[in-house]
């Protein structure tokens, strides 16, 4: 069974503000993701790893190709889905831990983490209990939980972000450099959490620059340079 199938995906940016120059990003991206495995996108900076992740999450549009996701036992093409479907997929089937936390003014760290569960209809107290559990595990000092994360350090914000991404049971989880600003202890916590997700049958797709973490979590590495578009001369 396939959790996610990316087929012939290609993407260019047209920069209208720079005389309409066309920046090819990737072409003919093909890979599959199976339940219980963690696939890491490899390649140097600028190869398009982040763009692929964003396309898979529906954050970037695609020029061609398909992104087929299993959603409640049905195959849905996220590349051509309408906004409502994308939002439904994000709520139920695909999660994303971004590199940076987009903070919302005045919302406490605890509520930021609990929100994805609340949206799915989980009781607020229950969602907050789960959020506390995760924040404690990620060693975020308890005095910070009731504060909005806007003033947190990079590492603290990242842990809030990870907790928020891991709190739900999405069948596909996208990870964009989740350990970049973490110390060794917390990196180890995240590695353990990824292992648990895998054991639970979640399919993970990630970008990890940290060599050490990468070798610990990756089942397979997909080399993104293989999808480099042929630059027209």
């Amino acid at each position: 069974m396939t959790a996610l199938s990316v087929q012939n995906l290609s993407k260019t940016f047209t920069m209208h503000l720079r005389d309409g120059i066309i920046l090819p990003v990737v072409a003919n991206v093909n890979f599959e993701l199976h339940p219980g495995e963690c696939v890491v996108l490899g390649g140097p900076s600028g190869a398009g790893k982040s763009s692929i992740l964003k396309m898979v999450y529906g954050n970037y549009g695609v020029d061609a190709g398909a992104i087929v996701l299993q959603h409640h036992g049905e195959a849905v093409d996220l590349a051509t889905a309408d906004p409502r479907t994308v939002l439904t997929l994000r709520r139920d089937s695909i999660g994303y831990v971004s590199q940076f936390l987009r903070t919302v003014p005045r919302v406490s760290a605890l509520d930021v983490v609990a929100e994805p569960l609340v949206i799915r209809g989980v009781d607020k107290a229950e969602a907050q209990a789960k959020a506390r559990e995760l924040l404690a595990r990620l060693n975020l000092p308890e005095r910070l939980w009731s504060l909005p994360p806007a003033t947190f350090s990079g590492g603290e914000q990242q842990r809030v972000n990870i907790a928020r991404g891991f709190i739900t049971h999405h069948s596909v989880l996208l990870l964009d450099e989740p350990t970049a600003s973490l110390d060794a202890i917390n990196r180890a916590v995240v590695v353990a959490m990824i292992a648990e997700k895998k054991a639970a049958g979640v399919a993970l797709l990630g970008i990890f620059h940290d060599e050490d973490v990468r070798t610990q979590v990756a089942d397979r590495i997909v080399d993104v340079t293989a999808f480099a578009p042929r630059i027209a001369a």
Binding site: T14, M15, H16, N59, Y60, G61, P83
Partner: peptide, 21 residues
């Protein structure tokens, strides 16, 4: 028109790109 984060993060039209930038 479209999903808010897609329009803002991957704007297609010249005017939208200008607006976002």
């Amino acid at each position: 028109a479209g999903l808010t984060d897609r329009v803002l993060d991957d704007p297609r039209e010249p005017y939208t790109q200008l607006l976002v930038s």
